[in-house]
Design a protein around this nucleic acid. Structure first.
Lengths: 237, 237
DNA sequence: CCAAAAACATGATTAATATCATTTCTTATA
DNA sequence: TATAAGAAATGATATTAATCATGTTTTTGG
């Protein structure tokens, strides 16, 4: 990790602000952040924070993609969150006053701002709408996590794989061809998202390719048959 | 469900208040709750709120035990939360402005108070410390849910069973004998907590009994060998 | 108190998925 | 560009846990 001198993001004019939790903050509050924050640059693969570390503030992703994963006692990793530009990071541990539960790793080069805890707290205290917005975020995340629990407990791997691909499409969007999912992940990362062995993930992706649901260009995944992918995910409703 | 005339809980003098999220509220705020809330009595087995229902406020459990469970598309249930007196209920859906994700069912007879959304909101808006407390609660719950995800993805059923028993001990405590877990659950409920088939849960409990880790008195579960139960749970450290 | 239903228990079998092993392909880097 | 390291792919086998089947015990309601 290093501070990149030519990256001076500025909350007031930040290009991702309107996609972020800070979109409704007042200018004075943004200036508070600007006056105290630090900006960092991480290369792909570098770690932004570590499991068991103590949070001293909150991160806001300026650009890039990040995974947050737990390490099981046997060393196997479980990805519990996928983040992108505009997302906050580290707020769960900070707000519950706990150590980090997971490790955040850059999946691409990342530009990220760090807001010290005291300043973030001050803004939270002074702005009740922002507090409510944070509660909204936390409870949505909690709802998603609980649905993930149900999926893991009940759905076969094939359905979880299809669902994960739909989740990635929803989170990172598609490339201009309107079919290729806009993120590059290793097979192992995909396996660790859905909670299965790497070989099983590889086999399922191959199966989907044979079934012409997907095709691959390098590591990029292209959705060839969206309706069938949705059917495979077996989403209730 | 019915309003039980002889149950008139009063937040100011409520016996479970100091165990609850309301422990640090001011008297004026408690009086706001008292002035607007309704108190209900549910018999064991009755439903307090339904999956997909719209939350209109927040519940506070005065006495009794409650499970919150999701229904998978195939009808199988997954328990995502276990609550007891002093716990809030329904706040996740309320604060994220979503439908209920799960169904809350009384595991015992239950006395519960309902605080209308507007009043709860008003207190949240007016009391920033309370907002911070709610964020703390939500982020702790989120942390627990994420750890459950990792467990489901990585641990074999035997370890999850041991862990669930430790969780129940931690949540509901022990009876005066200091060994019997203070909650009665069906084998099916236990299976639905750890995400396995009922038969598998039964077999594991029998196995634990044969190993003298547990013994049963009716449906009550008594922990005979606590250290071994902890070892079986294989909890990292 | 009895009948019916529900819950518990256990065996046999099957299905899903993990693990182990090996080969091929890709990507860093010396 | 050669070479090693890592990632992907695929087959064979093992293991875990689900499902199906059946009997027993406990609970509940008339």
């Amino acid at each position: 990790m290093k501070t990149k001198p030519d990256f001076h993001a500025d909350c007031v004019t930040c290009k991702v602000r309107d996609k972020s939790m800070f979109c409704r903050l007042h200018k004075t509050e943004l200036l508070q952040f600007d006056g105290s924050k630090s900006c960092y640059f991480f290369r792909k693969g570098e770690v932004i924070f570590h499991e068991n570390g103590h949070p001293r503030g909150v991160f806001c992703i300026s650009s890039g993609k990040i995974k947050v994963s737990h390490t099981g006692y046997d060393g196997k990793e479980q990805i519990v969150r996928m983040a992108k530009e505009g997302d906050l990071l580290g707020y769960r541990a900070f707000l519950s006053n706990q150590q980090y539960n997971g490790t955040a790793t850059a999946l691409t080069d990342v530009e990220i701002c760090f807001i010290p805890g005291e300043v973030f707290f001050e803004v939270l205290r002074g702005n009740n709408n922002f507090s409510l917005q944070m509660m909204h975020l936390l409870s949505s995340e909690l709802g998603k996590a609980e649905r993930t629990i149900t999926d893991l407990a009940q759905k076969p791997v094939r359905e979880r794989m299809a669902e994960a691909l739909l989740f990635l499409k929803g989170t990172y969007g598609l490339e201009p061809d309107n079919a290729t999912i806009n993120i590059v992940l290793s097979r192992e990362d995909i396996a660790n998202m859905i909670g299965t062995a790497t070989e099983t993930a590889i086999r399922l992706l191959s199966e989907f390719r044979h079934n012409r649901i997907l095709s691959f260009e390098g590591k990029k995944i292209k959705i060839e048959d969206f309706p069938r992918l949705v059917r495979t995910a077996n989403i209730p409703d």
